[in-house]
Amino acid sequence: MALIERFQKVTDVTYWEGQIPMSYIYTVGRAGEKFFREMINGKIFGAKCNQCNLIYVPPRIYCEKCFERLEENYLEVGTKGKVHTFTQCYETYDGVRKEVPSIVAVIRIDGTEGGFVHWLGEVEFKDVYFGMPVEAVFKDKKEREGSILDIKYFRPIK
């Protein structure tokens, strides 16, 4: 007999449904604690590696390049940056069509290495360009909870 028997009818193809019934609570960690606490204050923090002479945003406890400790080197980096690259999204993370597409960008905070992903607001997609100066727009102070969502979006600097 063949290893794979041929199905005669499509109704012979059966399946079993299931899921992985887990949920998660992630602590934000030592560097994250600094980063997100400061976010409540409307500030963005980074960490400087003096050996490599660069600033990571978000901050980290270590430099991935030289492995130096950076916990003594947290510093405020301002809330302004530039659009490094961008796109417009028409679907949610799980594949559902959005009514209003959103603009997603990698924003590099001025004077720092790397960047982070966030939304762009108060701007039309056709007007976005590489290197566009943007600034963080925070939620009202009382609504902030120490989350990346404390920044509503970045908007062009007029």
Binding site: T27, G29, R30, E33, I61, F67
Partner: peptide
């Protein structure tokens, strides 16, 4: 049972001590 550090931070602490 519960550490505050992220997985990356735990990995770093062990790796750094080994080096």
């Amino acid at each position: 049972r519960n550490a505050q550090e992220t997985p990356k931070e735990l990995a770093y602490e062990a790796a750094r001590m080994a080096l």
